[in-house]
Amino acid sequence: MAKTSSTTKDAQDLFHAIWSAYSATPTNLKIIDLYVVFAVFTALLQVVYMALVGTFPFNSFLSGVLSCVGTAVLAVCLRIQVNKENKEFKDLAPERAFADFVLCNLVLHLVIMNFLG
């Protein structure tokens, strides 16, 4: 009993701590996070759809899911590079990071288009 109540209290404390720490992050990073959440959510939707309908056009399923996951991953990479607290990337211009991000996304979407049909 006590253990569970202590764990729930710990959980709540943890939750508050995370929430407060997260709110401290700058807005542009939060936008990126929102984008990531959107992508992951779409991916989950597709997985649920596939579980209902079956894997028939498997290549379309793969390309849809991988496009979402890929977008998420690339956005996370951008976030890593743009985050000012990251000491390894402090001499990387954010424009350069963004340009790389755009290039990678272009390649990703090109491949997705090819694989979709």
Binding site: S63, L66, V69, V73, C77, I80, E88, C104, V111
Partner: peptide, 18 residues
């Protein structure tokens, strides 16, 4: 390190697709 993440994660996704 985060460089490892950048080196690895996009490679897996794009690589599998390609």
């Amino acid at each position: 390190s985060s460089r490892l993440y950048i080196a690895y994660a996009p490679f897996v996704i794009l690589g599998t697709l390609l």
